[in-house]
C-alpha cells in the first residue's frame, strides 16, 4: 500500500520546506524556478497551517465520501461505436510520424 498512515498534525509544524516542495514538483512533473519553489513553499505552508483545523473533527469510523450522490455505477453494453477517424485525434499532436505520436525516447 502506497498510502501509509501518517498524521502530519502530530508533527510540530506543517511547514513545507523547499526540498519537500521540490520533490512534489518532480512528482507533478512541474519545472519550477527557485523563486517559484520558495513562494510555493511559503504559500502552501500558510494554506496547510490553516487546514490543520480539520484535525479537530472527529471522523472515526466515517466512510470517506468520494462522490456526493448515492448513485451506483451504470454499466455500458459491450458494443463498438466508431465516431471519428484516427486523424481527428492526431491533428493536435505537437509531433507525429505517420499516424503515431512521436515522443522522446522512453527510458527502459
Amino acid at each position: 500500500m502506497a498510502n501509509s498512515k501518517t498524521d502530519p498534525s502530530s508533527s510540530a509544524s506543517p511547514r513545507l520546506d523547499k526540498s519537500t516542495v521540490a520533490k512534489v514538483a518532480e512528482l507533478s512533473r512541474l519545472k519550477l524556478s527557485d523563486a517559484e519553489l520558495e513562494s510555493i513553499a511559503q504559500q502552501l505552508s500558510m494554506v496547510l497551517a490553516n487546514f490543520e483545523q480539520l484535525a479537530q473533527v472527529n471522523t472515526q469510523g466515517v466512510e470517506p465520501m468520494v462522490t456526493p450522490t448515492d448513485l451506483t455505477l451504470r454499466l455500458r453494453e459491450d458494443r463498438v461505436e466508431r465516431r471519428e477517424p484516427a486523424e481527428a485525434f492526431l491533428e493536435n499532436a505537437p509531433d507525429r510520424s505517420g499516424n503515431l505520436f512521436k515522443v522522446p525516447p522512453v527510458v527502459g
Binding site: R76, E77, F89
Partner: peptide, 30 residues
C-alpha cells in the same frame, strides 16, 4: 466504445476517451 480488434492501422481504434483528450470521461463495459 472503440473496438478491441486492432489488427488495423496505427491509432485506428482510438477516441477522445482512450487518447486522454480534455473533458473525456470513462464508462464501464458490462
Amino acid at each position: 466504445t472503440d473496438s478491441t480488434a486492432f489488427a488495423s492501422g496505427d491509432n485506428e481504434c482510438v477516441c477522445e476517451v482512450c487518447t486522454g483528450m480534455p473533458g473525456a470521461l470513462p464508462t464501464v463495459n458490462r
